[in-house]
Amino acid sequence: MIKPILFWLLAMLTAPFFSAVILKVKAFFGGKKGPPILINYYTLFKLFQKGSVYSHSTTFIFKMGPMISLGAAVTALLFLPIAGQPPMFSWHGDVILVLYLLGLGRFFTIAAAMDTASPFEGMGAAREAYFPIICEATLFLTLILFFMLSGELRLSAYFFGGEPLHLWRAAGAPLFFVVIALFIVLLTENTRVPVDDPATHLELTMIHEVMVLDHSGPDLGMIELGSYIKLFFYSTIVTRLIWPYDMGNAFVDGALFAAAMLAVYGVVGITESVMARYRMDKVPKFVLTSFALVFFATIITLEFMK
């Protein structure tokens, strides 16, 4: 029981660090030195020390938004085997609960944005409501594939210990398409380039950043922390698929897992450096690609399993 808690805490503590890796990679590609690697911690501390300004238009939902989106991300992490270690909770169907909890977080993020009566935030909210619909379809399709391969409906049956290796053995090459699809979902759900540009300067072209324009102080800190954890969640899934091995020792596994995570975050950084953000009406096609890939992988696997 101690180990899962330890890894869970460790995951939450290191999530901001991993996010900073993306910034570093981007700075490297831009030929810049970039912010310090601990920048996200400094930001969080700074925000937590401040007070807040609330808009006259807002209600209690505005304050609920950051708490629920952070809470959903933290709860989701409780069910996820981090670095192949057993998660705190695991039961039949926990994946569905986790995906819907993340949906709850999204509902409140959107509601908090709509609370401000700002036209920009409404625009961001509309996009935040739109793109994840296709992501959800992709994720559930992936789930069907994983269920088909493992016969179980829990996160720990896919990502615990050497289980990912079983998935690879059962499915083979089609799982590669799934990895790509999940990476696309990662980019979309965490609003990274090429879906959204977190570093752009124009509110009209943002998704996530524009939705939190009016949050300040600890509220904003919680949102930031929540988004780091959410990114960590999706990256862990992708990482476990590209590094499916289990060494049997928690520390070795942890270290190797961290290295693989760095690679995934690095790829996110590289993607952000070499790609431009898509025009908003091109994004659905990009996300739909992930759906097509998983669908395709499922059909092929089905054909082979006969």
């Binding site: 007070g51 300004v53 808009s55 324009l213 009016d214």
Partner: peptide, 9 residues
């Protein structure tokens, strides 16, 4: 902490 109210940005 000081919590104040203002217009929407």
């Amino acid at each position: 902490k000081t919590v104040s109210r203002g217009g929407t940005w």
